[in-house]
């Protein structure tokens, strides 16, 4: 895997490498190199299978990270290509022409993270969240608890106590707040 990295480095501008295991390596790459790298890895280096495409919300840095995990069946190795994109204009070139299955992942990312992949088949159709009107739920600024409280009815008869207030009532109720 390290040799592959050294070899790729001669042809492409690459970012940092992180070796998770001997058979699992992640490389950060510039977004403009992604498609040609994937094509080269698929057709020349034997990484024929797209395992998954997923995203991480680095809200503090105002970035999304996309991870393209590809697999070489021959050598049983996995390679993850990481692309960092801007969070405000979250959009990325589609790779459905390299792997048709990518379209499904991209549809999911559009719905859950709000990352657009222009040109990807059925990209604007609902995936699993039918009629969703909030911000995409996997964005970290989505408040799950608030959504849950607003959306689902509370069963009648529920009540809760704050531990500190409860102990105050028991142990020192005379003190004013």
């Amino acid at each position: 895997m390290i040799e592959l990295y050294e070899q790729l480095k001669q042809r492409y501008a690459l970012g940092e490498i992180s070796v998770q295991r001997f058979d699992l390596v992640f490389i950060t790459v510039p977004r403009e190199n992604l498609a040609s790298l994937l094509l080269y890895l698929r057709d020349t280096e034997g990484f024929t299978h797209l395992v998954l495409l997923t995203a991480v919300d680095w809200i503090e840095d105002n970035k999304f990270q996309l991870t393209y995990l590809i697999n070489n069946r021959e050598s049983a190795t996995d390679l993850g290509l990481r692309v960092i994109i801007d969070r405000d204009e979250a959009s990325m070139e589609s790779i459905h022409d390299l792997w048709p299955t990518a379209a499904t992942y991209q549809r999911e990312l559009k719905e859950m993270f709000g990352i657009d992949f222009p040109g990807s088949p059925r990209i604007d159709e609902d995936f699993i969240l039918e009629g969703w009107t909030e911000i995409p739920p996997y964005r970290r600024d989505f408040d799950t608890l608030e959504y849950s409280r607003d959306t689902y009815l509370e069963r009648p008869g529920r009540s809760t106590s704050d531990p500190a207030q409860h102990m105050k009532q028991l142990f020192y109720p005379e003190d004013k707040d």
Binding site: S148, R149, Y152, E154, T160, P163, H166, M167
Partner: peptide
């Protein structure tokens, strides 16, 4: 994240300084 948990007083479990009960 679902608002599924309430903290409730339970008969037979007394509060102490290290346990709200």
């Amino acid at each position: 994240q679902n608002g599924a948990i309430d903290m409730v007083a339970v008969e037979g479990i007394d509060a102490s300084k290290e346990d709200s009960g």
